[in-house]
């Protein structure tokens, strides 16, 4: 039987910033088309884990492969092209409109810009295409971040606290979209402060504390 290797493999992964360990001894396997929710208190290492998976911080020791790229010796720039990032702080230029942000991303990726209208409609922002990003509400900004990802269609989606400041309708919208993306074969890693999101979203929950994995429940 043909076995596809996991999209994410971490073995005893350690991330140090200025000598301080943000992550220690992390072991993780994720298959293509899987969804994992990473939970933990503030400072537990959720964002650092996502940043490691996206090639946005370097692996200090241990071993890791994401999308076939070695985290220690591989081309991290190429890895970043294969992942999509949605941060809780906003993921775009505040002084550009929703459409201008997506046009910039599409042109940077060499993609046609005629998909932008469809993507904005998909995330419910078709009435706000000409609104400057900083004038969008927190929920709308999060939807714009999703539109950015839908336009890119990355192999791995890294969503850092996407539920922060969202109302119930927004959370349901995100849940539905994440489920759709996973069904499409993408790997999704979501960090969520609220452990309840893990039960709503995923059969697998990774719990972090002090940069260590303290729970991995499937």
């Amino acid at each position: 039987m043909d076995e596809t290797p996991p999209v994410v493999i971490l073995r005893d992964a350690v991330v140090l910033i200025n000598g301080f360990p943000l992550l220690s001894g992390i072991d993780l396997d994720l298959d293509a088309g899987s969804l994992v929710v990473v939970t933990g208190a503030n400072g537990a290492g959720k964002t650092s884990l996502l940043r490691l998976l996206g090639g946005l911080v370097t692996l200090s020791s241990g071993a890791g492969v994401v999308s076939g790229i070695d985290l220690k010796h591989g081309d991290l720039r190429e890895l970043r092209r294969r992942v999509g990032w949605l941060g809780h702080e906003g993921s775009f230029y505040d002084d550009l409109t929703a459409r201008e942000n997506l046009t910039f991303a599409a042109k940077a990726l060499g993609r046609p810009t005629d998909e932008i209208g469809r993507v904005l409609e998909r995330v419910g922002l078709s009435a706000r295409t000409s609104t400057v990003a900083k004038q969008l509400s927190a929920g709308q900004r999060r939807r714009l971040g999703l539109a950015w990802l839908l336009l890119r269609r990355p192999e791995t989606w890294l969503l850092d606290e996407p539920y922060a400041s969202l109302d119930d309708q927004g959370r349901t919208f995100f849940d539905d979209l994440i489920a759709e993306v996973v069904r499409g074969g993408a790997t999704v890693v979501v960090s969520a402060h609220d452990p309840l999101r893990s039960t709503a979203l995923s059969p697998r929950t990774l719990t972090l504390a002090g940069g260590h994995v303290v729970g991995d429940v499937s």
């Binding site: 190429e78 970043r80 941060g87 702080e89 990726l109």
Partner: peptide, 11 residues
């Protein structure tokens, strides 16, 4: 930080 991360993923 969010903008830097997103732009980095554009390669």
């Amino acid at each position: 930080p969010g903008t830097r991360a997103s732009i980095a993923t554009l390669g």
